[in-house]
């Protein structure tokens, strides 16, 4: 941690000294989520909530329970433009590397309940999730995103319980090249193999699954 950080946190310094280093990072992350930073990053909770549940209406993703390393890389991607997003770009640029790590760690530890949407997803959604669409060499989503889509490591985030609007937007972004930070171009290849209807179906399916 940089010395100036301690200056900024002077009132909390005594408390920080009483807890292990990992907890200090989490405490810092909570503060960023609630209040934002002096460098101009607004409070994350405004859109993502303190519990990291996100908001379906605005397409703000659920962050609770995602792997910290994944979220750190997404913040970097917003900053360097490999994820084109007018809202997140200035925010990501305002966060230092250690701030990004701290707030990602905070949200990774959250357990948002999150209400699942009403109604049923089209059958094609479950099929894509568990079997894939091999006529276009699209494997089952779960083949990489883990059992039930609850995550397959830091490169393959949980998509179960994620907002439908967000998932649709990401699949479209990969297809159109507005998001290019997928490792090895794997998601671009997958997204290009899906029709708009299938994108909708698979997003609707995962939005109705239980998040990790």
């Amino acid at each position: 941690m940089k010395p100036q950080r301690f200056n900024a946190l002077a009132p909390a310094l005594a408390a920080l000294l009483l807890v292990p280093v990992g907890d200090a990072a989490a405490a810092d992350g909570r503060k960023i989520a609630r209040n934002g930073t002096n460098a101009g990053a607004p409070a994350c909770k405004t859109c993502h909530g303190m519990d990291g549940a996100g908001r379906a209406a605005g397409g703000f993703p659920r962050l609770a329970g995602l792997e910290a390393a994944y979220m750190v890389r997404q913040i970097q991607a917003y900053a360097d433009g490999t994820r084109a997003n007018a809202t997140m770009k200035p925010i990501a640029k305002a966060l230092s590397a250690s701030q990004a790590r701290a707030v990602a760690t905070y949200y990774a530890d959250q357990k948002a309940s999150g209400r699942k949407p009403d109604g049923k997803a089209p059958a094609a959604g479950r099929r894509l999730a568990t079997i894939g669409k091999w006529s276009k060499t699209v494997p089952a989503c779960n083949a990489c995103h883990g059992p039930g889509g609850r995550g397959g490591g830091a490169d393959f985030p949980a998509i179960a319980g994620q907002h439908e609007s967000y998932l649709v937007a990401q699949l479209k972004a990969w297809r159109k090249g507005r998001r290019t930070n997928d490792p090895n171009g794997l998601m671009a290849a997958v997204a290009k193999g899906l029709t708009a209807k299938e994108v909708q179906a698979v997003a609707a399916y995962y939005a109705r699954q239980s998040a990790p």
Binding site: C144, G146, P147, G152, G153
Partner: peptide
């Protein structure tokens, strides 16, 4: 996916 050590990867105790 398969790891630098070639060992593959599990999630929730299941081979992915």
């Amino acid at each position: 996916c398969h790891g630098s050590d070639g060992g593959g990867r599990k999630a929730e105790g299941t081979w992915v």
